[in-house]
Amino acid sequence: MKAVVQRVTEASVTVDGETTGRIGRGLLVLVCAMPDDTPEDVAFLAGKIAKLRIFQDDDGKMNHSVQNIRGAVLAVSQFTLAAQWRKGNRPGFSAAAPPAKGEAFYDLFVEELRKLDFVVETGRFGADMQVSLINDGPVTLWLDTAD
């Protein structure tokens, strides 16, 4: 799985004028399933994100995880993380998992995060979404379970 993790002071996602998810301090996670991903990859990624020490302590060092600060997670499916862009100028997305697997693994990812006792808000799989955020830091990380 691929994910872009952004430390935020707030974030929200809207579909057709309806807010489907909104968080305060925490993480916005854009996530993409790949064809070779397994349920173990999903659980590993969720666990790693929960424990990433990217929030500042009292000394200004990144020593706290989203778990430590009791933050929330906004999880948004984003197949475009699998973009193939080297050839031509229009990216291709055939490297992403097929939609049925992508949705199943996105749902599993959200479930794994909730098992870790997070408030988890979501977008809507396959929808045209508008995502708003205030990136804190900015802190943005690229994670790929294939690495």
Rank of each mutant, 00 (worst) to 15 (best):
R7K: 06
A96E: 01
E112M: 08
K61H: 13
P98F: 12
N89Q: 14
T122S: 08
T80Q: 06
P91F: 07
D117H: 15
E40W: 00
T19L: 07
A50K: 04
R25D: 12
D117M: 09
D128T: 14
E10L: 08
Y106R: 06
T122Y: 01
C32T: 03
G137Y: 11
V66T: 04
D107C: 01
A146S: 13
G24F: 08
R114A: 15
C32E: 09
D41P: 01
D117W: 09
V119S: 12
V110G: 10
Q78F: 01
A104Y: 07
T20C: 11
G126L: 05
G17M: 05
K87A: 15
A11F: 06
K101F: 06
G21Y: 06
D144Q: 05
T19C: 14
A50T: 03
A75K: 00
S65R: 03
S77E: 02
R7T: 04
A146T: 10
L28Y: 03
A33W: 04
V42F: 02
D59Y: 03
V8H: 07
S132L: 12
Q56L: 10
F109M: 09
K48L: 07
A127L: 10
G126T: 13
A127Q: 14
F93A: 08
G123V: 06
D117L: 09
L81V: 03
D58N: 10
M62V: 00
A83V: 06
T80F: 04
F118A: 09
P39K: 10
L74D: 03
G60L: 02
